[in-house]
């Protein structure tokens, strides 16, 4: 996998809701408002997984969403990173013992960065994206 240095100045983000309560999704929308303006670092929210470098997953993965999440992940062109937003995606959160869960997220697709919180603040989400960048750089350097 080769990684050009321009990669970290141009991260395009695709947002996937895998059964979230919408709390994290609202925080993601808050992150792209002019107050935080991630576009100054080249971060853009895109509409198609084919255009994306980063997959933001919110919510515990429900049984119906699991195959869709897998397909969206496979549709993204590599190199790619997955960021799991919110407590639900890490442990199931308040839905941890639900009969309808196929998650958490890392049971379905490989996750690179976790951003905990219910819901995480926009600052936390930006920090998560930056952490994902350093992970990408390590990958490019040949470390695992």
């Amino acid at each position: 996998m080769s990684l050009s240095p321009s990669f970290k100045r141009s991260l395009w983000v695709f947002h996937f809701n895998a059964g979230s309560c919408n709390g994290c999704d609202i925080e993601i929308v808050a992150t792209i408002t002019p107050r935080y303006d991630p576009e100054r670092f080249g971060v853009r929210l895109v509409g198609s997984p084919k255009h994306a470098d980063v997959l933001l997953v919110t919510g515990p993965v429900t049984k119906k969403m699991a195959p869709r999440l897998r397909r969206v992940y496979e549709q993204m062109p590599s190199p790619k990173v997955v960021i799991c937003i919110g407590t639900c995606g890490q442990s199931g959160g308040v839905f941890y013992d639900s009969y309808n869960l196929d998650g958490p997220v890392d049971d379905v697709i490989p996750v690179d960065v976790y951003v905990p919180g219910c819901a995480p603040r926009p600052e936390a989400i930006i920090y998560g994206v930056v952490t994902a960048l350093t992970k990408l750089e390590r990958l490019a350097g040949g470390e695992e």
Partner: peptide, 28 residues
Amino acid sequence: SARMQARIGPPLSQPYIDLKKLLSKENI
């Protein structure tokens, strides 16, 4: 456009950076 929305906005070279990144990515 960013300045009109009271944002700082990307650098003028952003499309070149985007293009370089797109050229290095997988073509599905």
